[in-house]
Amino acid sequence: MQDLGIRVLFEGKNLVRLLGGLWVTLQISLLSVALSILLGIILGMIMNMKNPVVKVITRIYLEFVRIMPQLVLLFLVYFGLTKAFGINLSGEVSAVIVFTIWGTAEMGDLVRGALQSIPKHQYESGRAIGLNEFQIYAHIIIPQTIRRLLPLAINLVTRMIKTTSLIVLIGVVEMVKVGQQIIESNRLEVPSAAIWIYAFIFFLYFIVCYPISRLSVRLEKKWKD
């Protein structure tokens, strides 16, 4: 009877449902990451401005997002926007908004750091050979920034994928929630199902996150050499 627990995985559409849950997880996290990278680059460049007002505002935003747990932000966007403004967003859209707000702050700070790490003489050399600001950024600064940034940005992807498990609390049925549903519907008949389901969820997270993590390491090595 030892195999009973694992058998639950192959009952009905359970396996397909878990993979469907993984797809929801990936959709939300990858869309959030794409938006975060885009907005984060803009934010990072804004954060490098000399304007003290801009610096204060971006600092407040960064600290606000870092201090506030994602779960609170999820509740604020999902329930709060509806109550305050009558804006009724779905759980999926709320999740993308929250993870984009969080990801943009993280990414913005990474971009700021990467830009600041580029020596001043690079800018000066560009100007000396007659390049304008756009050309300096396009041909000198951005290529170097991307090299420093990409491994860190890839790391953000894996963090985003793992953090999406919070969205079960706003009614989004992703991989962890599907797993819990399968466990619950079998808990009286097959109490050992839990260990198998969670092991399979771990395996799914692993096969998604491990290659991304390896890619990050490879790129870091490649660009160091």
Binding site: E11, G12, N14, V173, I183, E184, S185, R187
Partner: peptide
Amino acid sequence: SDKKPFGYVDS
């Protein structure tokens, strides 16, 4: 969606 037998999701 996870409280059998009151409300749950079947296989």
